[in-house]
């Protein structure tokens, strides 16, 4: 056993310098740093604004219907006189929650699926990956919509449905990583010492496949947020009285000619969020995999 410990120590040492290098590269990437700052800021605002705002998100004021942005209501008010600033950041909160949860679901499915396929290899791998190939080509939005229409508009179902259709790429990445790593000596070493398969998967393979997985997970968050917003815009996602950036944009789109700020603010916040998350994910990829750059 001690030899294995020694081997994984060496592995760890290499890793820590890899992470350090990546961090140095990331720090130099200005856009990525600005983006990560924006993402953190949005997180904090999403938590704080609905709490701190003097206007509750669902308080109807008939005396302040459809007001343009002003000093009292920075983002204006909607057709029921609700404060758009509070509603936008409340919507952001829901969007972030859906994005993170769905990402987590797809992360779990994808990692397990990919690790199993890559580890067992051979026929199992071929069959599992063929399935992924086939499903990859399908218009998954339709299946999400079927699920939403059949099981009703439940936010938990929404998490699951989005997560369940976005794990495919993750499974591919994990499988590729596992396949390439499982050829390496330290896995042979562990195997020859009679370590159990499950232990090898969780202690050796997954930690080593981490780089690309982190990058892809980061890039998956904006994607799932987009899917949620998309569904909510169509009326198939978040239902009133709850609101997400997508459903706010949907409400705004119908009254756009009179109250353009109703779609402008949720739309711009969503776009900035997605932009920042995408840029950060890209920066992370460049930092963790310098070969991809240039």
């Amino acid at each position: 056993m001690s030899s294995i410990a020694a081997v994984s120590d060496i592995q760890l040492e290499k890793k820590s310098s890899l992470w350090l290098d990546a961090w140095c590269r990331l720090k130099k990437n200005k856009m990525a740093m600005v983006s990560s700052f924006l993402v953190v800021a949005f997180f904090l605002l999403a938590i704080a604004v609905p709490i701190l705002s003097p206007f509750p998100i669902d308080e109807v004021h008939y005396d302040s219907i459809g007001m343009a942005p002003n000093t009292l209501h920075w983002f204006g008010t909607d057709i029921l006189g609700r404060d758009m600033l509070a509603r936008t950041f409340y919507g952001l909160r829901i969007s972030l929650a859906v994005g993170l949860t769905a990402t987590l679901v797809s992360f779990a499915i994808g990692v397990v699926y990919g690790a199993v396929a890559g580890f067992y290899g051979g026929k199992v791998d071929a069959l599992m990956m063929r399935f992924v190939d086939v499903v990859y080509g399908l218009p998954y939005m339709f299946f999400v919509i079927i699920v939403m229409s059949v099981f009703g508009n439940n936010i938990l179902i929404l998490f699951m449905a989005i997560g369940a259709v976005s794990w495919l790429t993750m499974a591919r990445i994990v499988r590729g990583q596992v396949l390439s790593i499982s050829q390496k000596e330290f896995v042979e070493a562990a195997r020859s010492c009679g370590v159990r398969n499950r232990t090898i998967i969780f202690r050796h393979l997954i930690p080593n496949a981490l780089g690309p997985i982190i990058v892809y997970t980061t890039l998956m968050v904006p994607r799932t947020i987009l899917v949620e917003a998309f569904l909510s815009f169509l009326g198939l996602g978040i239902q009133p009285p709850q609101a997400s950036l997508g459903s706010l944009a949907s409400d705004g789109a119908s009254a756009m000619d009179l109250y353009p700020w109703l779609i402008l603010f949720p739309g711009v916040v969503l776009a900035i969020l997605l932009f920042a998350l995408n840029y950060f994910g890209d920066g992370l990829r460049d930092a963790l995999d310098p070969r991809m750059k240039k």
């Binding site: 739309g267 997605l274 995408n278």
Partner: peptide, 22 residues
Amino acid sequence: AMLGVSIPDFVLGPLFQLIFGL
């Protein structure tokens, strides 16, 4: 391109309507 990837259809569409239409 990054902007294009980040602006969803349902924000871009109304924006186009607002600018080029209204």
